[in-house]
Structures are given as C-alpha cells and as structure tokens.
Design a protein around this nucleic acid. Structure first.
Length: 412
DNA sequence: TCTGGGGTCCTAGGACCC
DNA sequence: TCTGGGGTCCTAGGACCC
C-alpha cells in the first residue's frame, strides 16, 4: 500500500491588512487607533488599537468622529493595498512554487518537500517568510502551517496578530477542541446553528462524527471540510492568478429607503454603466444580466434576463432592465439597496454575436464606449454618463463617493 | 453581526428528451 | 393513454467567503 506523504500547507493572513498598509505608508500612525473607510462612510478596516476602544467594522464614520475624536480616519487606498498584496505574495514565491492568491490579504502555499532545498525546517521557513514581509514591507502577518488548507486557516487564526501556529496530525485534536465550530472556514451561521442543535459545539465534536453521520446530515461540501479537518488533503492549491471574473456586480445602498421609481431606475442605470465599464476593461461580456432591489427589511427581489446577444453596452442593457423593472418593484414598498449583476461572463473575442441583428448596434456603441473609457482614464470617473443615470449621480446618497458631485457634466 | 460591497460554488426542482 | 426509467440542461435560490 502506498503511504501518502503528509502535506505541509502554509496560510498567510495579513493583520488588519488595510490599516497595516496605511501604517507602512505613514509609520507615524503605528501604535495608534486608525480606521479606513472614510469614503464609504463606514469603517472597513481598523487597527488593533481602534478595536481595543470598542470600534467595530461597519460602524458609521460619523459615530467614530463623535465618540472617538482621537482616532485617525483615512480613506481607503485600494491601489496601495493591491501593490502591497502583490509584494507579499512575491515574497512567498521565493520559497514555494505553488502559491494561491486567495484574497487581497491572504494566500495559501504548498511547502511540501522544500526543507532540504532551503536547508531549513518548515518552522524556520515560515519564520523567514514572516521576517522578510516584516522587514521589506513593514506590515505584520499571521501564519498557519498544517497538513490541509482548512487546518492551515485554523492555525493562522489561532494566534493573531503576528502569530505563527503549526498544527500537525498529533496536535490537531487539541487545537480543534479549542476552536468553536462557527470559526471553521466554510461553516457559516446557518450550518453552525444547525450543528449546535445536534450537539456539535467545537470543531473536535465535528471531526469525531463518523462519515456516515456527515453524509446523512450534511451536503457534499461539508464532507470535504470534514475530511480536511481530519487531515486529509483534498482542497488543492490553485496557483492560477485569477484575472477572469465569472460575474461582476455593482450595488449601492441608500438612506433613507425609498420607493421612488425614477430614482431606483437611475441607480440601476448607473450600476449598469459601471458594470459595463469593468466588463470592457477585462474584455468580457455577460450572457445573463440580473438586477435586484433590496427592501428596507432586507428582502431581496431579483430578476434575471438571458440576453439573446451578449453585450457590455449600457444602451442595450438599460432598456431591458426598464422593461422588466416591475417584476421586482412594488409600489408600496421602501427599498434600501439596488444592484446589478453580470453573469456567465465570456471573453469578448470569442463573442460571435447573434442571429438577431443586435450585434451591429452593439458594435457601434462599443466603439463609442471605448473612446469614453479612454477619456475617463485621462480625466477621471463619471465625466460622461447616460442621461438615465443622471438622477443617481445628482441626488446625495449616503455612501456615494463625494467626487461624484460638482463635476461638469456631459450628457450622451 | 442589527447588517457594505464584491465575489464563488452547490443543490433542488422543473423542462425536455428518449 | 397518465403510464416507466433515466439522462441532461437550465433556473432560482441558498450558503458562504473576504
């Protein structure tokens, strides 16, 4: 019988990543309470010092200003975060060939078998990676090392910030007995409630169930999770850098909630324009487009449209949404969010058009939009937009970028 | 978690086919 | 005629993630 060689998977998680980068950019902020998210009106990331004061993610910025006047409030600098993220992953690639960029501040890497090459054991390699990230980028990360991806996520979370935790076959049970089931990657509120009702409180309780019980009570993804927690490597590292989206979504909430049809339609119109711009940027076209309204009570009403010809041109998509608007809209209900999603994106090059003759029109608009895109590149976002979007740009909306206003407008 | 915005993947059930 | 078994494709919707 062949014995499978145990894997060593590394997981790195940035510590309060966005503010970590802000502190690296401006070291004077180190050790101070700092939050980002000013431009959105809610806290999107916060330093450990800010956390200690009782500030939470999602807290309105005005409350932070009012209740914690000493806290530094910064707008998000997404470009910088992407840069730091890339540099962090590159440092990991000095040691491992297979690195999966999981999110802006997290990656997995397969370290299996590289000890000899680097003349260090796994702990030393992880320490070295951490040191290089600290020294070169001036940000702090937490690292987990374990035989599977799911266990490595448990490990990296176990000590934070600036932690390094190693879980082996022998110590798995011990760590999992101290990990509440809802902390496991892939087990959300619904499933953890369900499991708790069945008496499963910790991750150890979970892995001690037998496989038959898992199959009878849960769906397939949870069986994979169960195996991973039991040390069986099933979720592979996927080193392909994902530049291709399978969907693009644009949404915005507003306050107060409203049932004003014109306003909701113009919000959707704006989202379609932005979604189309993003799709064009990545040379993608959707096969399906859906839009939704979310009520004041957080109920989502959605409608999906299958396009008979793929297009990323708003002049074609917006009328379709207008036609179908009443399928989600009810007169007497107040809405708080509107959004648009482009589904089943395919590459623009293989977009062969259709048999219905829409394609020529689409192509004409495409030419115009390419020119607008390059104008916006030069002069900034929202210098040109459709008249149907006007209402969305003009009305002051909570959470809308302030630079949407007071621009010279050019109607199409 | 009193709830922002952008994503991925899985599943149940219906339509349709032989 | 209302009666099989089995397969595929599509859709809506749920659950989860950062």
């Amino acid at each position: 019988m062949q014995v499978k060689k145990e894997k060593t998977i590394l997981h790195i998680d940035g510590d309060a990543f966005f503010v970590g980068v802000e502190m690296a950019k401006n070291p004077k902020l180190k050790g101070k309470p700092v939050v980002t998210g000013e431009e959105r009106g809610i806290v999107s990331a916060l330093s450990y010092e800010a956390k200690a004061l009782g500030i939470k993610r999602g807290m309105p910025i005005f409350r932070v200003k009012r209740d914690f006047p000493k806290v530094t409030i910064l707008p998000g600098d997404y470009k910088a975060y992407v840069q730091y993220s890339g540099k962090m992953f590159d440092i990991v690639r000095r040691y491992a060939d297979d690195v999966e960029e999981y999110s802006i501040d997290e990656c997995f890497a397969d370290l299996t078998g590289i000890e000899r090459l680097h003349k260090m054991n796994y702990r030393q390699i992880a320490e070295q990676i951490k040191k290089e990230i600290n020294d070169e980028l001036n940000i702090s990360v937490s690292i987990g090392l374990a035989p599977t991806k799911v266990l490595s996520k448990v490990a990296s979370k176990y000590v934070k910030p600036n932690g390094l935790t190693i879980i082996t076959k022998d110590t798995t049970l011990d760590y999992l007995s101290k990990t509440p089931i809802e902390k496991i990657w892939g087990i959300g509120p619904k499933t953890s409630d369900y499991l708790k009702r069945k008496g499963i409180i910790t991750a150890k309780d979970f892995i001690q169930k037998n496989v038959t019980w898992i199959r009878e009570n849960l769906s397939k993804p949870y069986e994979i999770l169960w195996n991973e927690l039991n040390g069986e490597y099933l979720m592979k590292i996927d080193p392909i850098t994902k530049t291709i989206y399978s969907s693009i979504q644009k949404t915005r909430s507003f306050y107060p909630a409203t049932n004003e049809k014109i306003f909701l339609l113009s919000q959707l119109s704006k989202h379609v324009e932005e979604g189309c711009a993003k799709a064009r940027y990545y040379k993608l076209v959707p096969k399906k487009v859906s839009f939704f309204l979310k009520t004041k009570d957080f109920v989502i009403n959605e409608h999906q449209i299958t396009l008979n010809s793929t297009t990323n041109v708003p002049e074609i998509l917006i009328p379709l949404i207008e036609e179908n608007f009443n399928k989600v809209y009810k007169k007497n209900i107040l809405y708080r969010t509107a959004g648009v999603t482009f589904n089943e994106l395919i590459s623009d090059d293989i977009n062969q058009g259709d048999l219905f003759g829409n394609n020529n029109l689409s192509k004409k608009f495409e030419v115009i939009h390419k020119q607008i895109d390059s104008l916006e590149n030069k002069f900034g976002k929202h210098i040109v937009y459709l008249a149907s979007t006007q209402k969305a740009i003009k009305r002051k909306v909570k959470g809308t970028d302030s630079d949407d206003f007071d621009r010279d407008l050019l109607f199409l």
